[in-house]
Simulated scan of single mutants.
Amino acid sequence: MNYSFRKATASEIPEVWEILQQAIVRRKKDGSEQWQDGYPNLQSVQNDVEKGQGFVLTEGETITGYSAVLINDEPEYAKIIGKWLTNDDFVVFHRVAISENHLGKGLAKKMLEYIEDFALSNNIYSVKADTNFDNTAMLKIFEKSGYKYCGKVYFRGGERKAFEKTLAKNS
Results as ranks from 00 to 15, higher is better:
58 T>A: 09
69 V>F: 02
131 T>Y: 04
166 T>E: 12
43 Q>L: 11
139 L>W: 04
85 L>K: 09
113 E>F: 02
68 A>R: 15
47 N>Q: 15
79 K>N: 15
61 E>A: 11
104 G>W: 08
158 G>Y: 07
129 A>Y: 11
102 H>G: 03
56 V>S: 09
125 Y>A: 00
52 G>Y: 10
15 E>T: 10
60 G>K: 07
165 K>A: 09
83 K>E: 13
137 A>Y: 10
41 N>G: 11
83 K>Y: 12
60 G>R: 13
150 C>A: 06
2 N>A: 10
4 S>F: 04
151 G>F: 10
28 K>W: 10
116 E>L: 00
42 L>D: 14
58 T>N: 01
23 A>P: 07
59 E>S: 10
31 G>F: 05
169 K>Y: 01
151 G>D: 06
36 Q>M: 13
109 K>Q: 09
74 E>V: 03
47 N>Y: 11
82 G>Q: 14
171 S>L: 13
80 I>W: 04
113 E>I: 08
51 K>D: 14
122 N>S: 05
25 V>E: 13
132 N>R: 04
116 E>V: 00
100 E>W: 06
149 Y>E: 13
24 I>P: 02
167 L>I: 00
128 K>Q: 01
148 K>E: 11
35 W>Y: 09
33 E>P: 06
81 I>R: 13
74 E>F: 10
24 I>G: 01
159 E>A: 11
103 L>C: 08
35 W>K: 06
39 Y>N: 12
55 F>C: 07
148 K>L: 12
98 I>H: 00
3 Y>P: 02
9 T>F: 14
152 K>N: 12
1 M>D: 15
40 P>E: 07
87 N>D: 12
96 V>H: 05
22 Q>I: 01
41 N>D: 14
17 W>N: 12
8 A>Y: 01
56 V>Q: 06
109 K>L: 08
144 K>R: 15
97 A>C: 12
18 E>Y: 04
22 Q>C: 06
77 Y>Q: 05
62 T>Q: 14
25 V>S: 08
160 R>Q: 06
148 K>S: 13
58 T>L: 02
68 A>Q: 11
45 V>K: 12
110 K>D: 01
154 Y>L: 09
84 W>I: 07
18 E>D: 05
23 A>I: 04
116 E>P: 05
65 G>S: 02
101 N>C: 10
81 I>D: 14
161 K>P: 00
22 Q>G: 07
14 P>N: 09
132 N>H: 13
106 G>L: 15
111 M>G: 06
41 N>F: 02
91 V>H: 01
145 S>I: 05
70 L>K: 12
160 R>F: 08
113 E>W: 04
46 Q>Y: 09
32 S>E: 05
168 A>Y: 04
171 S>W: 13
100 E>H: 14
44 S>F: 08
102 H>F: 15
133 F>E: 13
16 V>I: 15
